[in-house]
Amino acid sequence: MVFKSKGEKAFSMIVTFCAMFLFWVLLSAWIVYIPQHYDLIEISKGIICALIVTLISHELLVSSRGEKVLLKTLRMIPYLFWELWQIVLATFDVAYRVIHPKMPIDPRIIEFETTLRSDFALTTLANSITLTPGTITILVKPETGKFWVHALAEKPADALLVDKTMQRKVAHVYMEE
């Protein structure tokens, strides 16, 4: 990602440093428990580690200034709960197919195109497809939004090809309809 101004670079570095230092405090929480270890040397170790990580990888966490980040995050929350329920359904579906003595599977490879273009939306959709009933993403072509998906039977394939519930939900979350 290319930065447009110095302000954005400083903003991304500050955000990354705060996130890394918070992560370090959470991981080494024994310092908070034992007060006599709570001295300047321990804290400065954490600050130095966070600085090194920030200098190396501040472009990765905050890539560029997005639009309407707060609204997207708010729309993400109900989608996550729906996704959790889908994961439970998917696991019961696969467990049923494993335990059934005849193994009712009929694998196939399907292709479809979406209207999504941005990296985050494509990654979300690919991971969601992998975790929902009977389908795994094989390939994604970001330029045309094309997906190759391996489906375990006919019914989960139709859920992606005909109903398109998941594509509509992800497009609603990232506002790329």
């Binding site: 696991t91 696969v94 795994i136 375990l152």
Partner: peptide, 29 residues
């Protein structure tokens, strides 16, 4: 669920279907 995932890894007929069993059952387990 983890036992089911391991059984699917052994029972399913080829590589792609085996990954279905491991990718879902193991994650939730």
């Amino acid at each position: 669920f983890m036992i089911t995932g391991a059984a699917g890894l052994l029972r399913f007929p080829d590589f792609y279907t085996r990954l279905h069993a491991t990718g879902k059952c193991d994650t939730l387990g």
